[in-house]
Design a protein around this nucleic acid. Structure first.
Lengths: 113, 113
DNA sequence: TCCATAATTCGAGAAATATCGAAATATAAG
DNA sequence: CTTATATTTCGATATTTCTCGAATTATGGA
């Protein structure tokens, strides 16, 4: 049942390769540790609850989000471990160690110490 | 005709979200500036030329690869600019500036100065 | 010019994904 | 125990994507 790294990565990319799911994932990334409630997301994106539920389940299955029930609502968070795993897989053994080709690819505007 | 950043990102992710295309892209990333010939890729992956051609066109359309004819063969290369653009989009305004949540996400094994 | 090679485009059936209303489940409150 | 709320699961249709043989285009050499 344990998927190969490649198969896992395809699943993760497939999860992100959809307009609604990509919006959801980025909302979760930007929300950080607090995450967001399912209903809150559905409302902000104007997506019917049942449709959104499929998308959230897809992201979770793919290892890019986690869910936790809090009484009646369910809180979703981005899974930063999964995100890291995906980026690392894409850049693995990059450009034969020549930093000139891709050095600045990681100079990203994401949060830094 | 100019796609929004979100639409562009969905296209890029869709391109990567396929077993064969992900393999091709990673081969190109690892090949670096030299790139690879279309036929060479088809042979290594045991994919019929016409099928591979669709996948290569898909990656190029998505902004993740470039092609250049050299007499009778066509050389494909990873587009590291597109790659960077995609990663930056995914991590934009990440986790409300709190480095604790995702700081190490960029500590990736890719080539570094 | 004629042939061989490398790669792309065409085309159409097969397979996978997306959508969302209706029904079901889980929790809390009265 | 009944009702209200939040979310998920079911199910059936609609849409999109994938695949690869055959035909086509581009290039170089005899």
């Amino acid at each position: 049942m344990t998927a190969s790294p490649q198969d896992w990565a395809v699943g993760a990319l497939q999860a992100l390769a959809h307009d609604t799911r990509l919006s959801v994932f980025r909302m979760l990334v930007q929300a950080g540790a607090d995450g967001l409630m399912a209903g809150e997301i559905a409302q902000k994106l104007s997506v019917p609850p049942s449709t959104l539920s499929h998308h959230l389940a897809n992201l979770e299955r793919a290892g890019l989000a986690t869910s936790e029930r809090e009484s009646r609502v369910i809180r979703y968070r981005a899974d930063f471990g999964g995100m890291r795993r995906l980026l690392a897989f894409l850049m693995e053994d990059c450009c034969q160690g020549d930093p000139l080709v891709c050095a600045d690819i990681l100079e990203i505007t994401a949060c830094r110490p």
